Simulated scan of single mutants.
Amino acid sequence: MTMPAGDVLVAAPPSLHRLGLVAILRETWPTVVIRVLPGPDQLLVLLTQQRFALVIADATISSCLLPQLQQLRTHGLCPQLLVLTGRHQPLAVRHCLAQTGYPLLSRHASPTEVIQCVSGLLCPPDASSHYPTPTRRRVEPPTPFSRRELEVLRLVIADCCNQEIADRLFLSVRTVESHRRALLQKTGAKTLVGLVVQAMREGWVAA
């Protein structure tokens, strides 16, 4: 199929979640250039200089992103923009994000939901050319995770350190480290980055 011109920009702080998201996009659309902007606070400046087929902006951390989104909408600088939101964002912030008019997607959405949403923005139904939308199937890990291991995995993807995971789950740091080792062994991943990419790609941490 003919691919529309333009790169995809992911504006999100460095994190394991961003690595997983970019990996999903690159695996799904290998011929599309995926660019990364480490600081969402620079988004407005960049979009005055360059156009993208789609921008995916993470609004879960950057406090300066909301006014930028409002300016982008006012000046029509970015017609195709997807905003990632978090579970625990204040209601007022979520309301303001909705008021920008840009589509919102939970940061904890499954890979299938991410791909469907991105495909819908890149290729509206009446478009003559579009990105192919693959059918993704949830693949279970080689060895099933326990409920506690899944809880630890979700917090690892949320960029929590061992102490933060221990505090949230009321565990000792040593127990958290044990769960992380078990996750690596069960998946065959060699690093935490590899574990996160694999977990997001296969949908193991879908909300």
Rank of each mutant, 00 (worst) to 15 (best):
Q68P: 02
S15T: 13
L150D: 09
C161H: 06
R136F: 05
I56Y: 00
V93D: 05
T31I: 15
G6L: 02
R174Y: 12
L54E: 02
T187H: 05
P67Y: 11
T187S: 14
H179A: 08
L184K: 15
H130G: 13
L183S: 10
C64V: 13
R148A: 09
C160R: 14
R137M: 04
L21N: 01
A189Y: 11
L184R: 14
L43M: 10
L9Y: 04
T48P: 00
A199K: 06
L69H: 06
E151A: 13
A59N: 01
G101K: 05
S129N: 09
A127R: 04
Q50I: 03
S110Y: 14
R180Y: 06
V83Y: 05
P125R: 11
H179I: 13
L195V: 08
L122R: 00
H95I: 05
Q42E: 15
L105P: 02
E27T: 08
S128P: 01
L171P: 01
A207Q: 08
Q80T: 07
R138W: 13
L69C: 11
L81K: 01
Q71N: 05
L155T: 02
C161D: 12
R73T: 06
V83Q: 05
H88G: 03
V196H: 07
V114L: 14
K190D: 08
L43Y: 12
G120S: 08
V33F: 04
I157G: 01
A166C: 08
F170L: 07
A11D: 00
A23Q: 14
T28D: 11
D7A: 15
L97D: 01
Y131W: 14
A98R: 15
L47V: 13
F145E: 01
G203Q: 03
H108T: 14
T31K: 07
F170M: 09
P67A: 09
A92R: 09
F52S: 00
L195A: 04
E177I: 08
P141A: 09
I165K: 08
R26V: 01
T100E: 11
P111F: 12
V10W: 00
A158K: 05
S178V: 13
G76M: 12
T112A: 14
L43H: 09
L54V: 02
P79K: 07
T175K: 06
Y102W: 11
D41E: 14
A158G: 09
L69T: 11
V45C: 06
C123G: 10
L84Q: 04
R181E: 13
M200F: 03
S63I: 07
V205G: 06
R137W: 06
R107W: 11
D41H: 12
H75N: 08
I165R: 05
Q42I: 07
Q80W: 12
G76H: 06
Q185V: 06
A5G: 04
R73A: 09
G86Q: 12
V118Y: 10
P79L: 05
V152G: 03
L44F: 14
L37P: 00
T175A: 11
E27V: 01
P144V: 04
H95Q: 10
D167G: 07
Q99M: 12
P134R: 07
G194P: 07
T85N: 03
K190H: 15
R147C: 10
G86E: 14
I115L: 11
T191R: 13
P30S: 05
R18C: 12
P142G: 08
P124N: 03
